[in-house]
């Protein structure tokens, strides 16, 4: 193992870590809305920059969506499995899905990326 190998490894790891940090911050800024879909149709659109609590009552059941500190998560649901509550907060990559209530919560940004 030569000195150049070590330098190469360090450069790759540092570059990847930097890219990770950049993407992480870019994503943290880019999510602007929590969009709730019920049965494939848009039900509500909540801005992430203000705290809110929304009770989504539909023919399928009830979910409570909470927006706090720029994070959106389902805090309560009257379904038996509570998968949507356990999912935690939604982000650009991760949507909250509640199958029995045909509900999804996705994060979208202003540009509609």
């Amino acid at each position: 193992m030569k000195k150049n190998d070590v330098i190469l490894l360090l450069i790759i790891v540092v570059a990847a870590a930097a890219l990770f940090a950049v993407l992480h911050f870019a994503l943290a800024d880019s999510g602007d809305f929590a969009v709730v879909f019920v049965d494939g149709e848009e039900y509500a659109r909540l801005p992430l920059n203000e705290d809110a609590e929304l009770t989504i009552k539909t023919e399928y059941g009830t979910n409570v969506l909470t927006v706090k500190d720029g994070q959106a998560y389902v805090t309560d649901a009257d379904c038996p499995d509570k998968t949507c509550v356990k999912t935690g907060s939604a982000d650009e990559l991760k949507s909250i899905v509640c199958l029995p209530h045909k509900l999804t919560v996705t994060i979208e940004s202003e540009g509609g990326r």
Binding site: M1, A15, E92
Partner: peptide, 23 residues
């Protein structure tokens, strides 16, 4: 395209496994 965000993680993992295999 969104799964491309895994790129940094996969690059680091590739570098580490490559290091082990190289050794």
């Amino acid at each position: 395209v969104k799964i491309a965000f895994y790129l940094p993680v996969l690059v680091i993992v590739g570098a580490i496994t490559g290091l082990l295999i190289g050794l």
